[in-house]
Amino acid sequence: MPVHSFQEHFDSLIDREITIEPKDWMPDDYRKTLIRQISQHAHSEIVGMLPEGNWITRAPSLRRKAVLLAKVQDEAGHGLYLYSAAETLGITRDEMYNQLHTGKAKYSSIFNYPTLTWADMGAIGWLVDGAAIMNQVPLCRTSYGPYARAMVRVCKEESFHQRQGFEIMLTLAKGTEIQKKMAQDAFNRWWWPSIMMFGPTDAESPNTEQSVRWRIKRFTNDELRQKFVDVTVEQTKVLGLEMPDKDIKWNEERGHYDFGPINWDEFWNVVKGNGPCNKQRLDARKNAWDNGKWVRDAAMAHAAKRKAREGGVKAA
């Protein structure tokens, strides 16, 4: 088949909403874009364990501790589903780790903010996992099979994450004056970074059109952000907390809530590595990797030794 007909065949699969699988022919740019998107998503799940891991030993009750532990363990699982989906595109796990550890690959900027109080566990589950779900649900129908199947698993597990966060917020919001203040403070700090999670505005996202065409993105950043703002305003009423953005206002004509200007300078500054915890997060990952080396080597040595021994027994 000449190259152009490979391309035509691929385009027609995409147009007919037929899934692309690892052994199918695909354009280089599609492969590269997917590797970048899936591996960054995987990195975000893995680095995302750190801010919450910070509170596991200090959870206020055994129930909260068990729940937080289960949630963080799920995030590790999400990272692993996604890394293995990316590997089907021809990149190795070690190459991806290397890209993360050298700063070549990014992860979601939200995880470069600190978790100062227990209420942050509520705000993260409610807002950060909430925003992630909004991003991820449409990806269950993305064009690349292994990615779509990983996302189905991820989404099934995510809804408990958001609910446990909301439950923490609700408990604090209905608690003592100090607890309510704590919830409001966490909300205030996590709100803006959460709506930045959807990425730059559509005008600043030149690749959106191609990604939508390839069905590796199904809604634009601004569409998803608006959807998130709309549902969060309603949930905030249930909590009895104040929206951190004073410009939030129902717009009858648009049928959506208007919101205030986003501080994109802050966003880009954190992306570039200057957020409050960028260095701390990356150091934690690198240390875990470096200090775990002897364990990885020992496991390989043990496996090799056992194999040799079993081989010897059979031969005898």
Partner: peptide, 23 residues
């Protein structure tokens, strides 16, 4: 269900339990 890395078959089964059967 998916794939994973492990040093040998026993570790692969144990990792599979943790990664793919938490529920």
């Amino acid at each position: 269900a998916g794939s994973l890395h492990a040093a040998d078959e026993q570790m692969a089964i144990e990792n599979a339990r943790d990664v793919y059967t938490r529920r």
